[in-house]
Simulated assay, not measured.
Amino acid sequence: MDVTSQLEWPAGLQDPSGCRQAKPRNQGITMVIDKGLGLHAFEDLLHTAAPYIDLIKLGFGTSPLYPAELLKTKLQMARQAGIETMPGGTFLEVAVVQGEVENCYRLIRELGYTAIEVSDGTIDLSRSKRDELIGRGLNADLKVYTEYGKKYWGSKIELDLLIETVIEDVQQGAALVTIEARESGEGVGIFDEKGVCRDDMLHSMIRLFPDPERVLWEAPQKSQQVHLLKKLGPGVHLGNIAPQDVFALETLRRGLRSDTLVWDALPANPS
């Protein structure tokens, strides 16, 4: 008897939510932030969690710190696992300040990245410059993700500007617009200084977004992930997920963890 044929979990145990899409998917995108994983750790991550990761961001300006061949290897491994990769948006901001945008795009493409993040978390970009950077990415055959929000402590979201930015970025060709929360998830964007979601702000944003499915929420803390999943559903796009938290987030999405298990959907007298 083929023992392996008996090892398939029933659908109700694999995904109690019943709504988790397989890759490539347009709901429930998970973006992981890599702050400098070595090759073996990166390989282990892909071997165990590739089906649950859609996008890996090599955070901040870490890209030029890698030996080029090692970086190429990481990006190739991710591509073979069906995962998109992009450098952190801060790196493109550095390129703008240094007048090295053209070289930045060229090297991103040559190294094997498949996407780019256009942000102004530290610097200020005019609307025309933002459009130019989005267009450059598309012309380089890169998927473009944009980001809204400043990185400094205590920064708040200007709702009208956010809605306008989301609409215009999508019109320019951005795949998703990320709402800034940094890797800490505290004192930035929709999260207060303790990392608690400002629900009044969240509700206003969702009510005004023309297409909420084009928004990715940075939510590095478990409590934030649980909160957004309960408010917006298992199909919400979440980012800045630590590599060691990918499995934990996937269980939350599927209802395989107590925080998101739908108790009233269980049988009245479970045996």
Rank of each mutant, 00 (worst) to 15 (best):
V101P: 02
V177F: 09
L71Y: 02
R109E: 15
W153S: 13
E180A: 04
L70E: 13
V188H: 05
E69S: 06
L75Y: 03
S155G: 09
Y152V: 09
Y148F: 07
F60K: 04
V144A: 01
N139L: 11
G154F: 03
L125Q: 04
I157S: 02
R127F: 12
A140T: 08
E132W: 04
E110P: 05
L70M: 11
D120K: 05
I163W: 12
R109V: 09
A95M: 10
L162Y: 14
G112R: 05
E117H: 05
A81L: 12
E69C: 09
E117F: 00
I116W: 01
K156G: 00
L161H: 12
Y66C: 11
D54Q: 07
I108K: 00
I157Y: 03
Q80M: 09
K74Y: 05
I163M: 12
E158L: 02
G189H: 02
T122I: 15
L71G: 10
Y152G: 03
G89D: 03
I108Q: 11
L142V: 08
A68M: 06
R106V: 07
A78R: 10
D141Q: 15
D141H: 15
V96T: 10
G121S: 07
L159F: 13
T62N: 10
A95Y: 01
L75W: 04
G187T: 02
D54F: 08
L55S: 10
R109I: 02
L138D: 13
P67T: 01
E93I: 01
E164L: 05
G189E: 05
D124K: 08
G89K: 06
K151V: 00
